[in-house]
Nucleic acid binder design. Structure first.
Lengths: 214, 214
DNA sequence: ACAGGTGTGGACCGGACGGTCCAGCGTCGT
DNA sequence: ACGACGCTGGACCGTCCGGTCCACACCTGT
């Protein structure tokens, strides 16, 4: 029937693998990579040790990489359909609301991708590389939105779209970090508000800001 | 007595304790809390296991807390004398340069306090509480600077100084996070540039930003 | 000289962890 | 029907880690 090339996964197999990934993602978000043991995952998924290594021959590192990919996809999906638009202020506002709701839903004021980056960037080069591309994708999507706004004359065409997108991402990640010890989301809101203001105002470019400060 | 009070530590003792704290701080910054074992610390400081528990009866958790405190002091000290001023744009510019130099010196595009927060906020309530006060201190110092600028008529008096300070901190932390996978500091620079712009422009308050987006 | 407390060394322990191995089961294609 | 291969279970292993314990050296005041 379905061409099951050697080493391929059955329907059941794929389901089990996905179950492992999602359960691991939850635990990792709560307890961190190092705080999540394979035995935890085994217990949470009602699987056995051998299955973990069957689906992820590379061991824990490969499993974590699969989690990173899954979280990245989820994160982007949560921002649709607005992320693909972002051509009006209404679209931006809806995008922001959706993203905030997504993080609120996770309950930890933590970005899955951001947390993984903080945990692995220095120690796991392979995963760090994947995360780098995830960030690039996200930034590019936002920058595309900025460019659409520029084309529509709603944002200063002189602004650097990529840097602007980067600063929005930074506001999100920094805001989330500051929200954690406060156990409240107002730091995230404050950070996003100022990022918002920067989007609206005729942009002061980097060079101008530097000279203005000097 | 309570335990070891009564000015228990001798000069030599305090030196050894400090040596342990600083060595641990370095390792933790590189490899994370979980990635740093007491044996690592022992080896790096040429001490013995018993000394670690002599100076930090609470074990690793207490040692990490001491590291957090030390890093917090270092971080604030690195921002002086500008942090205590911040009454002119020149002072802000010098503050920013000093801070960027400090992070660059650490070589990891990571903020010691930010990293510890990301690692411990969810799992170590006691340390998280200390970190909360560290953030509050930092934010307050920055907000005081904003207020000085407002008093001098250089920043819109209508702006919320605390929220503005928070957004600056968020830009720093988010910028650092995004810089890690890039192994370059331009995301930090981009984030700080826009935060800079927001400081300069007549501030759009949170309410205005929300209504403007709707 | 002696006592008591601080500083230091290092063996040792129990448990947790990532990872291996092998044997049996289920299912699919022929 | 049957063989192949993916799927599953769980015992087992070597290592590492945080933490404990005890012996001893050193300093200091009396």
């Amino acid at each position: 029937m379905t061409e099951r090339t050697k080493g391929a996964l059955t329907e059941k197999g794929r389901a089990t693998r996905q179950r492992i990934v999602e359960a691991t993602a939850l635990r990792v978000l709560d307890d961190g990579v190092d705080g999540t043991s394979l035995d935890d995952v085994r217990a949470a998924t009602l699987t056995s040790k051998s299955q973990l290594f069957h689906y992820f021959p590379g061991g824990k590192a490969e499993l974590v990489r699969a989690v990173a990919q899954w979280e990245g996809e989820q994160l982007l999906a949560a921002q649709e359909p607005y992320l693909s638009d972002l051509s009006t202020w209404e679209s931006w506002a809806a995008w922001r609301r959706g993203l905030e709701a997504y993080y609120l839903d996770l309950g930890r004021w933590a970005c899955p991708i951001g947390s993984l980056t903080a945990q692995l960037a220095a120690t796991d080069a392979k995963t760090a590389d994947f995360l780098r591309t995830a960030w690039t994708t996200w930034r590019t999507r936002l920058a595309d939105g900025v460019r659409r706004m520029q084309a529509a004359g709603r944002i200063d065409p002189g602004a650097d779209a990529d840097r602007l997108a980067t600063s929005v991402l930074a506001a999100i990640q920094g805001g989330l970090l500051l929200s954690q010890p406060e156990r409240a989301s107002w730091p995230l809101a404050a950070a996003l508000d100022t990022a918002w203001a920067t989007l609206h105002t005729p942009t002061t470019t980097a060079a101008e800001a530097a000279s203005a400060g000097a």
